[in-house]
Amino acid sequence: MSTSTMNPETADRSRRALAAEQAASLAATNDWAHVDKDRVHRDWHELYGEIAAAITAGAQPRDEAVQELVDRHYAIASRFYAPSRDAYLGMALLYAEDDAMRDWHNSYHPDMVEFLGAAMMRYAETRL
């Protein structure tokens, strides 16, 4: 399963959840003033390098090792706020649908957005 095959109602609900949860978190935290954004970007850079290597090595989004990498992704995202299942799915959609986000993620590996989206969907199904 990938974000492109997500049920349209689930996709809409997920986009709305992401927008609502981010807006509430931004308002409650003075635009995420509590987050060390430089550290977050360094941690994501390291993680995305590991995910790119996993893709190159033939890993699958459902693999336990990949799900552990996605657990780290969720933990990094949770430094801002802990996304609900729907909001986390919305984040996967954002990566696929926003040109700048897609290009940035795919700069690590041309299949990053598709692979990470599928892995995030699996993570949301089984752990959130």
Rank of each mutant, 00 (worst) to 15 (best):
M1Q: 04
M1L: 09
S2G: 15
T3N: 07
S4N: 08
T5M: 07
T5W: 09
M6G: 10
E9W: 09
E9R: 15
T10H: 07
A11Q: 07
D12G: 08
D12K: 11
S14Y: 00
R15Y: 00
L18F: 04
A20E: 03
E21Y: 02
E21C: 08
E21H: 03
A24T: 05
L26H: 07
A28N: 05
T29F: 03
D31H: 14
W32T: 12
W32A: 13
D36V: 11
D36L: 10
K37Y: 12
R39Y: 10
H41D: 15
H41A: 11
R42M: 15
D43R: 08
D43F: 02
D43I: 06
E46R: 14
L47F: 11
L47D: 07
Y48L: 10
I51H: 02
A52W: 02
G58V: 04
A59I: 10
Q60F: 02
D63W: 03
E64M: 08
A65Y: 02
V70Q: 01
D71R: 14
D71G: 06
H73K: 12
I76A: 10
A82W: 03
A82E: 05
P83R: 06
P83W: 06
S84P: 11
S84M: 10
R85S: 07
D86A: 15
A87M: 11
M91K: 04
L93R: 01
L93M: 04
L94E: 01
Y95R: 10
E97D: 13
E97T: 09
D99L: 10
D99M: 15
A100Q: 15
M101A: 12
R102V: 04
D103I: 15
H105N: 10
S107P: 00
Y108P: 00
P110T: 09
D111V: 11
D111C: 14
M112P: 03
F115W: 02
A118N: 10
A119K: 01
A119C: 05
R122P: 00
Y123F: 03
A124R: 01
E125G: 06
R127K: 12
L128Q: 10
